[in-house]
Protein backbone atom coordinates (compact mmCIF):
# COMPACT_ATOMS: atom_id res chain seq x y z
CA UNK A 1 0.00 0.00 0.00
CA UNK A 2 1.18 3.50 -0.72
CA UNK A 3 -0.53 6.88 -0.35
CA UNK A 4 2.18 9.32 0.55
CA UNK A 5 3.70 11.94 -1.70
CA UNK A 6 7.10 10.52 -0.73
CA UNK A 7 6.27 7.27 -2.51
CA UNK A 8 6.24 9.09 -5.83
CA UNK A 9 9.31 11.29 -5.40
CA UNK A 10 11.54 8.72 -7.10
CA UNK A 11 9.49 9.49 -10.23
CA UNK A 12 10.54 13.13 -10.29
CA UNK A 13 11.99 13.92 -13.70
CA UNK A 14 11.03 13.59 -17.34
CA UNK A 15 9.57 10.36 -18.77
CA UNK A 16 8.85 9.70 -22.43
CA UNK A 17 7.67 7.01 -24.81
CA UNK A 18 5.55 6.16 -27.82
CA UNK A 19 2.19 4.48 -27.29
CA UNK A 20 -1.39 4.52 -28.46
CA UNK A 21 -4.28 6.87 -27.81
CA UNK A 22 -7.70 5.65 -26.77
CA UNK A 23 -8.80 6.31 -30.38
CA UNK A 24 -6.01 4.09 -31.70
CA UNK A 25 -3.55 6.67 -33.03
CA UNK A 26 0.15 6.36 -32.34
CA UNK A 27 1.24 9.01 -29.87
CA UNK A 28 4.47 10.38 -28.44
CA UNK A 29 4.11 11.07 -24.73
CA UNK A 30 6.25 13.23 -22.48
CA UNK A 31 5.44 13.63 -18.82
CA UNK A 32 7.32 15.62 -16.22
CA UNK A 33 6.99 15.02 -12.47
CA UNK A 34 8.14 17.98 -10.32
CA UNK A 35 7.94 18.51 -6.54
CA UNK A 36 5.30 21.18 -5.84
CA UNK A 37 3.97 23.19 -2.90
CA UNK A 38 7.42 23.23 -1.27
CA UNK A 39 7.68 19.48 -1.48
CA UNK A 40 4.30 18.67 0.07
CA UNK A 41 2.81 18.02 -3.37
CA UNK A 42 3.77 16.59 -6.73
CA UNK A 43 3.06 18.35 -10.01
CA UNK A 44 2.63 16.42 -13.23
CA UNK A 45 2.71 17.95 -16.69
CA UNK A 46 1.57 15.45 -19.34
CA UNK A 47 1.56 15.89 -23.11
CA UNK A 48 0.48 13.38 -25.76
CA UNK A 49 1.36 14.44 -29.32
CA UNK A 50 1.14 12.91 -32.76
CA UNK A 51 4.56 11.45 -33.51
CA UNK A 52 5.49 14.42 -35.70
CA UNK A 53 4.69 16.84 -32.87
CA UNK A 54 2.18 18.82 -34.89
CA UNK A 55 -0.96 18.10 -32.89
CA UNK A 56 -1.32 17.98 -29.14
CA UNK A 57 -3.81 15.15 -28.66
CA UNK A 58 -4.07 15.61 -24.92
CA UNK A 59 -2.47 17.85 -22.33
CA UNK A 60 -2.93 17.47 -18.59
CA UNK A 61 -1.48 19.52 -15.76
CA UNK A 62 -2.10 18.14 -12.28
CA UNK A 63 -0.99 18.71 -8.71
CA UNK A 64 -1.23 15.79 -6.29
CA UNK A 65 -1.57 17.08 -2.72
CA UNK A 66 -2.89 16.04 0.70
CA UNK A 67 -6.31 17.23 1.84
CA UNK A 68 -6.44 18.29 5.51
CA UNK A 69 -7.76 14.79 6.21
CA UNK A 70 -4.51 13.38 4.82
CA UNK A 71 -6.17 11.85 1.76
CA UNK A 72 -4.31 12.52 -1.47
CA UNK A 73 -6.18 14.03 -4.39
CA UNK A 74 -5.12 15.58 -7.67
CA UNK A 75 -6.20 18.97 -8.83
CA UNK A 76 -6.05 18.85 -12.61
CA UNK A 77 -6.86 20.49 -15.90
CA UNK A 78 -7.24 18.47 -19.09
CA UNK A 79 -7.35 19.92 -22.60
CA UNK A 80 -10.11 17.36 -23.33
CA UNK A 81 -12.07 17.27 -20.10
CA UNK A 82 -11.44 20.68 -18.49
CA UNK A 83 -11.12 21.05 -14.71
CA UNK A 84 -10.85 17.76 -12.81
CA UNK A 85 -10.57 16.59 -9.25
CA UNK A 86 -9.17 13.07 -9.16
CA UNK A 87 -9.07 10.73 -6.18
CA UNK A 88 -6.01 8.62 -5.51
CA UNK A 89 -7.19 5.04 -5.14
CA UNK A 90 -5.22 3.02 -2.59
CA UNK A 91 -3.08 0.57 -4.47
CA UNK A 92 0.16 -1.36 -4.33
CA UNK A 93 3.51 0.33 -3.93
CA UNK A 94 4.69 1.75 -7.25
CA UNK A 95 1.16 2.43 -8.48
CA UNK A 96 -0.53 5.79 -8.86
CA UNK A 97 -4.19 5.21 -9.67
CA UNK A 98 -6.30 8.33 -10.09
CA UNK A 99 -9.97 8.47 -10.97
CA UNK A 100 -12.75 11.03 -11.05
CA UNK A 101 -15.52 12.66 -13.01
CA UNK A 102 -15.29 15.69 -15.25
CA UNK A 103 -17.79 18.54 -15.10
CA UNK A 104 -19.34 16.94 -18.18
CA UNK A 105 -19.82 13.75 -16.13
CA UNK A 106 -17.25 11.76 -18.05
CA UNK A 107 -15.48 9.17 -15.95
CA UNK A 108 -11.70 9.46 -16.14
CA UNK A 109 -9.13 6.96 -14.99
CA UNK A 110 -5.36 7.46 -15.06
CA UNK A 111 -2.84 4.92 -13.81
CA UNK A 112 0.93 4.86 -13.66
CA UNK A 113 2.53 1.55 -12.70
CA UNK A 114 6.23 1.22 -12.06
CA UNK A 115 6.72 -2.27 -13.42
CA UNK A 116 10.52 -2.03 -13.69
CA UNK A 117 13.08 0.23 -12.02
CA UNK A 118 13.22 2.56 -15.02
CA UNK A 119 9.83 2.02 -16.60
CA UNK A 120 6.38 3.43 -15.95
CA UNK A 121 3.42 1.80 -17.61
CA UNK A 122 0.86 4.54 -18.29
CA UNK A 123 -2.79 3.67 -18.88
CA UNK A 124 -5.76 6.01 -19.13
CA UNK A 125 -9.29 5.92 -20.39
CA UNK A 126 -12.43 7.96 -20.23
CA UNK A 127 -16.00 7.01 -20.86
CA UNK A 128 -19.18 9.03 -20.96
CA UNK A 129 -21.60 9.08 -18.05
CA UNK A 130 -23.48 5.80 -17.86
CA UNK A 131 -21.08 4.15 -20.28
CA UNK A 132 -20.00 0.56 -19.88
CA UNK A 133 -17.20 -0.25 -17.51
CA UNK A 134 -14.27 -1.21 -19.71
CA UNK A 135 -12.91 -4.69 -19.50
CA UNK A 136 -9.41 -5.53 -20.60
CA UNK A 137 -10.28 -5.24 -24.31
CA UNK A 138 -11.81 -1.80 -24.26
CA UNK A 139 -9.77 1.01 -25.78
CA UNK A 140 -7.51 3.02 -23.57
CA UNK A 141 -4.43 5.14 -23.91
CA UNK A 142 -1.33 3.14 -23.10
CA UNK A 143 2.36 3.86 -23.18
CA UNK A 144 5.55 2.52 -21.68
CA UNK A 145 7.49 5.51 -20.39
CA UNK A 146 11.23 5.53 -19.83
CA UNK A 147 13.30 8.18 -18.03
CA UNK A 148 14.44 10.75 -20.56
CA UNK A 149 18.10 9.92 -20.11
CA UNK A 150 20.50 12.15 -22.03
CA UNK A 151 22.30 10.50 -24.92
CA UNK A 152 25.82 9.36 -24.26
CA UNK A 153 28.28 8.63 -26.99
CA UNK A 154 29.29 4.96 -27.15
CA UNK A 155 32.47 4.18 -25.27
CA UNK A 156 35.35 3.80 -27.70
Amino acid sequence: MNNGIADYLPWVGVWAGVGDTQAGQQTAIRTDFVPALDGTGLQMHFEAWDTEFKTLYHGVRAVLAPAPSGVLRALAYSTIHGPLLLELTPDDEGVMALAGESLGRNHISVTFVQDAPAELLFMAFWRPAGGNVPDGDDPRMTCRLKPATPWNSPTV
Partner: peptide, 8 residues
Amino acid sequence: NLYVGRFG
Protein backbone atom coordinates in the same frame (compact mmCIF):
# COMPACT_ATOMS: atom_id res chain seq x y z
CA ASN B 1 -10.06 24.35 -9.42
CA LEU B 2 -8.35 25.27 -6.14
CA TYR B 3 -6.18 23.57 -3.55
CA VAL B 4 -5.05 25.29 -0.36
CA GLY B 5 -3.13 23.19 2.14
CA ARG B 6 -5.14 24.13 5.21
CA PHE B 7 -8.59 23.98 3.52
CA GLY B 8 -8.27 21.22 0.97
